[in-house]
Design a protein around this nucleic acid. Sequence first.
DNA 1: CGGGTTAGTGACCGGTTGGTCAGTCAAAAG
DNA 2: CTTTTGACTGACCAACCGGTCACTAACCCG
Lengths: 233, 233
Amino acid sequence: MKLADPPMPETSGRRRRKDARPSEIAAAALAVFAEKGFAAARLEDVAARAGVAKGTVYLYFSTKEALFEAVVRDAFRPLLDGVGRARMDTSTSCADQLRGVLTIVYRELVATERRQIMRLLIAEAERFPDLVSFYHREIVSRGRGLLAAILADGVARGEFRDGPAVRQPEVVIGPAIMAAVWKLVFEPVEPLDLDRYAAAHLDLVMAGLSAREEAPPQVRGSARHAPRSRRAT
Amino acid sequence: MKLADPPMPETSGRRRRKDARPSEIAAAALAVFAEKGFAAARLEDVAARAGVAKGTVYLYFSTKEALFEAVVRDAFRPLLDGVGRARMDTSTSCADQLRGVLTIVYRELVATERRQIMRLLIAEAERFPDLVSFYHREIVSRGRGLLAAILADGVARGEFRDGPAVRQPEVVIGPAIMAAVWKLVFEPVEPLDLDRYAAAHLDLVMAGLSAREEAPPQVRGSARHAPRSRRAT
DNA sequence: CGGGTTAGTGACCGGTTGGTCAGTCAAAAG
DNA sequence: CTTTTGACTGACCAACCGGTCACTAACCCG
């Protein structure tokens, strides 16, 4: 496109509009979808919010489904490489790495309007299986990989206790997801103090993972007598 | 009505139908709403699934919104008193009480189709604020009260460590909510082994709460920097 | 300036669907 | 048997909305 364009920047007035339109429309569409859901969102509202006529939407998106998919796909784009880069330097303790990851989740997902994407994904999951696959591949499995690596490393270093939670890293971020859901549903009724909540989450998880010198808890019948490989400090 | 009706039981064949209809329609509506969402669900589908004509639905529910609210409200009715009764006898240890509550959540919410109610509530939360208030009042705040009581009792008995998580009981069930969401969204892509997951959840929570020995008052998450073996796997 | 290009428009169409209501008919009443 | 009741029906209506397309006008270039 832009390659081999020696003389002038081709973005003149009219042209600049054309380049800007798709993202303008996408932003408007995201707002409307988040507010109304897919089925109840009206294309005319999207157009109006973007400051264009309804026909213009169809210049850039062939159908309502296509618009929805494009919008929801791109909503996490800015975070995608962030997740990739998130492999922090291994010099810090695993506990701190874990703290860092959870803090990012709270700051970038739970606390921002991006959680509306979660609502859309939950609501329309079975109408848009491709979208679900995309998110699973690009976000969820990567995130879990990162988490699993940190936990495994923590066990290897003797920071963390080996146990079922290490092999089920989802458990560790579960409370954060619940916080996002809570804010999506109950925020008007009973708002959630995210700082306090996140602190409690961190506290519980750290205490639950950390390897104690005193190994065996009196937790009876935990159905899991795995060898606590406590690589003592 | 029924008073002063000496001769015969008035529930004859025709009458019995009238009594049965609302719940039949409600059951059908729940299925259709769960499958399609509120906006995309068609009243004719509901009627067909209930084995009646469309007009019949309007004999019992004045509008589509009313039908939705009635259906979603009643979906948890059978569990309501269950939650109330769930104040287990205080003879068992608080750890066991907590285990019991979480097990019930997994068995009655996460593992059953009832989690579809969660999807509906999340998806339509801002279109039905009354419904949200209802659930918050009848289910969520009761459940949290129960949890908080168990945790506080556990602290008093010296079973649990006092800490921020005790004052934020939501954190403790967070992973279960996440499991429900996971199954709602990613089940077709990557199914979740609920037993393994629940075991990991229990393990993490019990370890995170249990008071070890004399418990250093505030661990502040073992920020030990011990880069003893910086080798990754 | 004028002809050509193209982003943008909005009236319109057709299918869908929430909601209505005049009518049907089985059972209860007499 | 006839009459009355009321649960149930489904054709119908009107509004709504996704998608189309003939048209407009802003812009570019010679």
